[in-house]
Amino acid sequence: MNTLRASSTTLRSLNIEFQPCNWASLSDVKFTELRSLQLTLSNPRRPSDCRHANLAEANILLSSTIPIPRFLKSMQHLTNLVLSLHHPSSEITRMAKAYFPALVALDIYTDPNAYSPALNLFIANHPGLRRLHLTSVLSFISQPFQTQHFPELRALKFMVEEANYANGNGLFPFFAPPDLGSAETIRARRPRIEHLSIYNLRNIQPISKYTHPYVNQLRRLDLQILDSGQISQEDLITTLGPFTALVEISVILDGIHERPGFGRRAIEKSIKELQNYLTSLKNCVPLRAIHLYNPSSQPLSSSDLQNLQPVPPALQYVSWGNRFGTTIFRVIHDSASQSAHVEVCEIPPPPREMVYDWTSENTFRHVLNL
């Protein structure tokens, strides 16, 4: 802590996790020059988890008064903020009035017992956000956000509420789907979102509910789907076919899967799965990278992918993942036959930042110069 205190006026990035019982040693440190902060408030499983066990129980009882807003107040140069709250605190209500004039990227993670409507107001205080990630097991239905509230927004990630599948109310994301009125109004008021990441989807069909105003402007699309099998070519064409500006797309199937089959038939099924994605995106001229993950699929080799057609005309890379691992292929186009084949390649991971950045996942932007 002494080292941290000594460098508090020069640090630009900080990733720190603390528990209520050690808050006192941190709360009076002022990090006046921070640009990026990842702050995690966790709950000790037992008093002995704290350094001073004899004080732990008392501090845990006092944890609801942890002055997080006051701690953040000195950080007026913050541009990136990641808040991970896993412990209730009455002080969270004071976040409603917190404001950081330079803030452009915000991620908020909460457990149900740590959520406060004040966080909605805190987010709304920052209409200049360019990157936003919302996650909570409680819904923002009582005060839904609309994308037009954030005219500078370029990247948005949100979770579809799983509870709504069970109660029959349909899908409702924590970030309300756009409702901008007529087509003319949509063109005039929609934000310039270029990257959309949606997770916890039950299947792929509903994505148009969230993406329809942006199909001609999205450059990146990430989908995490709780599906138990391959997505049909018809569904892929219907949902992915309308996108015309994508440069990169990732689709992760993350449901409960049967064990993958073996033998040539299983390999041919996986080849067909990949070809279905390529076919559905064949008219997406700028597309340069596809990231696919299906635990039930088979590993593929370059010899399995020698006559692919149709193929998006500018496609350069395919990342093919399953429970056995991930293989990256470089796509080689044959203009004469209008087909393509692949060769295995390696792409180093992007540089890792101290503060979490969800836009650095499932991307080759560092080699595509995006």
Rank of each mutant, 00 (worst) to 15 (best):
R5K: 12
C21M: 07
T32I: 06
R35Q: 08
H52E: 14
N54W: 09
L62T: 11
L62G: 13
T65I: 08
I68E: 00
L72N: 04
Q76S: 02
H77V: 03
R94D: 12
K97H: 04
P101H: 07
V104R: 13
T110V: 09
N113H: 08
A114V: 03
S116D: 09
T135E: 11
S136H: 04
L138H: 05
L138C: 02
P144Y: 02
F145R: 14
T147Y: 04
T147C: 12
A155N: 13
K157D: 07
M159T: 15
E161H: 15
A163L: 05
A163R: 15
N167M: 04
N169G: 06
G170C: 03
A176E: 14
A183Y: 10
I186V: 14
R187G: 04
E194T: 06
P206Y: 03
S208M: 06
R220H: 01
D222W: 04
D222C: 07
I225W: 06
S232I: 06
L236Q: 05
L236S: 01
L240H: 06
G241V: 01
G255F: 11
E258A: 15
L274H: 02
N276A: 13
N283S: 11
L292D: 11
L292Y: 02
L292I: 02
Y293G: 06
S297R: 05
P299R: 10
S303Q: 09
L305G: 00
V311N: 00
A314N: 13
A314I: 00
Q316T: 02
G321I: 02
G325L: 02
T327P: 00
H333V: 00
S339L: 05
I347K: 00
Y356R: 09
D357R: 14
F364M: 09
L368E: 00
